[in-house]
Amino acid sequence: MTSPTLTNTVLYLDGVSVTFDGFRAINKLSLAIAPGEMRAIIGPNGAGKTTMMDIITGKTRPDEGEVFFGGMIDLTMLDEAEIAALGIGRKFQKPTVFESHTVADNIRLALAGARSPFSALFGARNRIAEERIDAILSTVRLTEHRTRLAADLSHGQKQWLEIGMLLAQDPKLLLVDEPVAGMTDAETAETAHLLKEIAHEHSVVVVEHDMAFVRDLGCKVTVLHEGSVLAEGSIDAVSANERVIEVYLGR
């Protein structure tokens, strides 16, 4: 495996560590995602998957190590809003949509564009074309739920709405945390399809437990264990790796 260089990556982590009260959640983690790549990240509970997302999106500051976006932007210096504005979208493990808003308004708030209070009060934010909203709603198959409150959606629909919001942000990189947790098999298959569609135009990092789903995605897999990379490769190669079997699959 050749070591990836900074310039041809969309996301580049090197030697990242973070400690919570003496517990090393991430330990010298290094990872590189190429532009347009889709990557699945798997690992047992506590392997550091969510903390890694927190670091990339600016929620948690690493104690040491480098995190670069697009080869040149140091993410450790920025906060969540700035990182989101750069074009990194994140879907949470638990679906978080704005429950008091309609489905359309959820997308409206997520659409790329000016974000300042001033624009929201008097300016461009109030003149968003409905067509853009419609386009995204049809992508995530929620067109007929347009005027419903997000709170009234089913679990799976909320997951899709959140993916839709991510698309509306039009990010260069999508971080998707357990998108199919709690979904029916049909919904899972649909979601895999949806993500593959998205991956044509965006780089996507998917964190997932569901091995069948990861297999469906058919992309490169990284296995995390105790905060660092245990193995990397195709799903078949990884599944055959003895250390992976030992710490994760075999148990």
Partner: peptide, 25 residues
């Protein structure tokens, strides 16, 4: 009633989500 208000409510319901959408909460 402006989009500003919608963002406010979004902050009330899911502050961190709003932040990840790029709003300066």
């Amino acid at each position: 009633t402006s989009t500003y208000g919608k963002v406010l409510i979004a902050i009330r319901d899911a502050e961190s989500r709003t932040r990840f959408l790029g709003y300066r909460v």
